[in-house]
Design a protein around this nucleic acid. Sequence first.
DNA 1: CACATAAATGAGATACTATATCATTGCAAG
DNA 2: CTTGCAATGATATAGTATCTCATTTATGTG
Lengths: 160, 160
Amino acid sequence: MTRTAFDTHDHGDCIARGLAEAERYCAAQGLRLTPARRRVLEILLEEHRAMGAYDILERLRAEGRGAQPPIAYRALDFLTTHGFAHRIERLNAFVACAHAQDLHAPAFLICRACDRVTEAEVAPTGGELGRAARAAGFTIERTVREAVGLCPACAETSPA
Amino acid sequence: MTRTAFDTHDHGDCIARGLAEAERYCAAQGLRLTPARRRVLEILLEEHRAMGAYDILERLRAEGRGAQPPIAYRALDFLTTHGFAHRIERLNAFVACAHAQDLHAPAFLICRACDRVTEAEVAPTGGELGRAARAAGFTIERTVREAVGLCPACAETSPA
DNA sequence: CACATAAATGAGATACTATATCATTGCAAG
DNA sequence: CTTGCAATGATATAGTATCTCATTTATGTG
């Protein structure tokens, strides 16, 4: 069993590594990890959960930055476009990516009790969606795979 | 290859059958397919595409019904809860269900060019999500599986 | 360096999506 | 009949996302 967000782990380390990897990748690709973008990624890494754009804006405001909605949405566009963060459609929210930056098709497990989200990597054109697409002659460009349910810890305490 | 929304078909027939099935199912289950709920389902069947709640409201208004947002959202809640319609998370929109009403885990292929949506049925705990869930000890209650791309017709005309 | 260009930011307004609340109505079981 | 529950009507408000335009900052080229 691989490590997931439901496990405990050294969180400071995971923030530092996430930022370092993003910086390295941006330098290599000629992308600009500007202060605003970097800070939003850092917030997502710190919180380690799905956050709404306005949650992020609140954090930015608390830090004295100007924080109109487009500030957050622009940064999030950059981060999601380049794979540093993902959008959780079901929650209208965003999470820092738990993996390397190269192109991937993420799948998410969303705990409805504690709101934590864990990410797994899958083949973009694999599984049911891939099979349905091939049957219909459909060309897949992006996939959304999200499961809502209970994580191991919450399944014990809230069996409802 | 099974029939999909991307194929042509006798659409009048498919509306009539959808409504008839919903009525039969509601009668059997003691559910109330009230005029508002029935009309919203009919609109979704007629349009045969994903519609936002406010698109539906516009149609209702044009027909002279009072149409505050809760009217549409309540009807959509009923329809999605009982499997007569599905929510497309990626589009914040709704489609009539293309299948029987019993519990199912739908997967959707969304054409970004023509906005048509086709539905396939899959196993709720199957595929990548099921595998990831078992590995993490996660209990799946609901799944979202959506692919964005190009349908066969649009792939020819808009290769971009 | 000076300039042209492109990318990013700042700021305000607005559009789109969804829910809370409370009063009222209709239906159905006891 | 009346009690209780489900559904509706209506108003307000919350939450999410984008448009537009002016300004600044970085980059590259002569």
